[in-house]
Design a protein around this nucleic acid. Structure first.
Length: 571
RNA sequence: GCCCCCGUAGUUCAAUGGAUAGAACAAGGCUCUUCUAAGGCCUUGAUGUAGGUUCGAUUCCUACCGAGGGCACCA
């Protein structure tokens, strides 16, 4: 439709002998102003020395002369010189029909078809708790991945595990200090929680206790050399148990990883790359091996890749990791990494180094950053290791939801499942409603409220639509997109825009466009629901309203999927 | 000191250089003998400051004010 209207405008301008290369066609902010709008008249008014409003009138006259097809109801000039297009009742009926035909494929586009993309996110460290920051990268990474897939890309996901390093030594120190924490009794979640406590203890001691610091450094050396049998045993158990606990969380969150990379392996690969590029990229400075990125870009700075002790830093490991990813997927078109904001600058330096070594990779790396999650109520996690864990937040939110569900008549299994889905939706939506880089304030109460701006509100709207459709089935009213009434409902004016929203979200790697759009559609649907009796055998247009309800439910379900959220049929 | 990101209703967030800057929460009122009232309908309130570019600036540029992050061997 967009292209058709653009063509129409272009033809009209040509006939009037007005030159312009770029026609901007957008949706007006207010639905009352029409469905599409262009500013060409204002844009070219100056160059043809004409009053924008008069020029707009002339263009409209020419457009009308060119014959409208029955998708366009009327064209008019408004405001300072906008030309507004109002689409016809038929158009909206047709777009509902189209959505019905597309079903769960609704909103897909092919802009990325044939492209291979790998996205890295979540990245919790074994031996450390999965904290709420990991929920941020998970929600954003998962959603971006799904959006790109909806645009035709072949998407795989990878996770990167810090299996070595000081944090492991700190956890093991804590475990040795308090043997109770090494208990193998209970679920791996419980055991992982104990390891998290041990880590917090070790991390705390490392800061304030000289003796402990020495011991931890000692443990760290033993971990590298694998010389201590007891430490090795604790390590093997702790690694497995924390990784298993992460897998449980991924299941709840709806994430599946295709590749896992280990930091210990990347360290060696990274070190080799640095050595192979000495002189070319890296140089020695104060005993360490560094990359002076400011030589290439004034805004970048020098970073250490190999310490004077000969140990590869995060930067060198990242180098190895990227190399390994391109080896794993040789024809990869894009490698995306999602991390916190504070990594933005290192990533630029690392990316610069990589593009000097592999110029062909330069355009194939993309870094997405996320902000911090703070909780609006209760204590915030301190920096020293006792941050709020993802699991405890999930449990709190789930409990609050179960409390709200007491008047609902569900079996235990369904109740649990729904509480889970609603909980994940509450958290993920709160993250995804804002643009990616911004910090968010998470408010448990607001996130589970169905009044307004929340994931549960979206799910509720879907469940409601579903319940209408159930009734339609019982009453034998089949959807018919041709039986439309004269009235055009607001929800119809939004539904056909879904694919455009997906496209924009995909181009900008921004899930929040989907989130805001879904709220808008849900609101329009709930309003439609409130003001219309959908199932009504005495109403000729009932079959159309059922079709519209179907269309809404497809769009909502697909949209929620793109946010990484389940759409329960009942709630 | 240098670099990056940000500053929008009381609060939490939106707004591809466009029209009267949108929502939601909070406050008040109305609404279930209709399909989920976890809903719907109605009523207030904002672009940090000063300039500039533009027919038009929340958006671009400059300065200032304010908050956050990064800047050599942690990740």
């Amino acid at each position: 439709m967009q292209e058709k209207i653009k063509k129409l405008i272009k033809d009209a301008l040509e006939n009037l002998e007005i030159e312009t290369n770029d026609i901007v066609l957008e949706h007006p902010a207010d639905l009352k102003m029409g469905d599409y709008s262009t500013n060409v008249a204002m844009a070219v008014a100056k160059s043809v020395k004409s009053n924008p409003k008069e020029l707009a009138e002339k263009i409209v006259a020419e457009i009308l002369r060119l014959n409208l097809d029955n998708n366009i109801e009327k064209v008019e000039v408004a405001g300072p010189g906008f030309i507004n297009f109002h689409l016809s009742r038929k158009f909206f009926g047709r777009s509902v029909e189209e959505i019905l035909n597309e079903g769960e494929n609704v909103g897909k586009n092919k802009t990325l078809s044939g492209k291979k993309i790998m996205i890295e996110h979540t990245v919790p460290n074994p031996f450390k708790p999965f904290h709420i920051g990991h929920l941020m990268t998970n929600a954003i990474g998962e959603s971006v991945g799904r959006i790109l897939k909806h645009s035709g890309a072949e998407v795989s996901q990878d996770n990167y595990q810090g299996d070595v390093g000081l944090h492991v030594a700190k956890a093991i120190y804590g475990l040795l200090e308090n043997e109770n924490l090494q208990s193998k009794i209970g679920t791996h979640n419980l055991q992982a929680t104990n390891i998290g406590l041990a880590y917090a203890r070790g991390a705390g001691a490392y800061e304030v206790d000289e003796k402990a610091k020495k011991e931890i450094d000692e443990i760290n050396k033993k971990l590298y050399s694998k010389s201590d049998k007891k430490i090795n045993e604790i390590y093997d158990w702790g690694f497995e148990v924390t990784m298993d606990a992460f897998e449980d969380l991924y299941k709840i969150l709806g994430t599946k990883f295709d590749f896992y990379f280990l930091e210990s392996v990347m360290a060696d690969i990274g070190r080799d790359i640095v050595k192979d590029n000495m002189g070319k990229v890296f140089e020695e400075s104060e005993g360490a091996i560094v990359f002076k990125a400011e030589k290439y870009d004034k805004k970048l700075h020098t970073r250490v890749f190999i310490t004077k002790e000969g140990l590869p830093t995060y930067e060198a490991k990242e180098l190895g990791l990227t190399e390994e990813k391109f080896k794993t997927e040789p024809d990869m078109d894009l490698s995306i990494v999602v991390t916190a904001n504070e990594q933005a600058d290192y990533m630029k330096v690392v990316a610069k180094a990589i593009s000097i070594i592999h110029p062909e990779h330069e355009e194939k790396m993309k870094h997405i950053t996320h902000g911090m999650m703070r909780l609006s109520t209760g204590k915030m996690g301190s920096r020293k290791g006792n941050a709020i864990t993802g699991e405890s937040l999930i449990n709190d939110v789930r409990d609050a939801i179960l409390e709200k569900m007491t008047d609902r008549d569900f079996g235990n299994e369904e109740r649990e499942k729904i509480a889970n889905d609603v909980c994940v939706s509450a958290i993920k939506y709160s993250i995804l409603r804002s643009s990616s880089g911004s910090d968010i304030v998470y408010n448990v109460e607001e996130s589970i409220s169905t009044e307004g701006d929340s994931g549960p509100y979206l799910q509720y709207s879907f469940a409601r639509a579903n319940s209408v459709l159930e009734k339609a089935k019982k009453e034998d009213i089949l959807p018919d997109p041709h039986a439309f009434p004269d009235e055009i409902f607001e929800v119809e004016k939004l539904l056909y825009k879904f694919s455009e929203v997906v496209l924009r979200a995909s181009k900008e790697y921004e899930p929040h466009y989907i989130a805001s759009y879904l709220i808008e559609v849900a609101r329009a649907f709930n309003s439609f629901y409130g003001n219309n009796l959908i199932i009504d055998k005495t109403d000729k247009s009932s079959a159309y309203k059922v079709a519209l309800t179907f269309a809404f439910s497809f769009v909502m379900k697909a949209g929620l999927h793109l946010l990484g959220i389940q759409a329960p049929e009942r709630m």
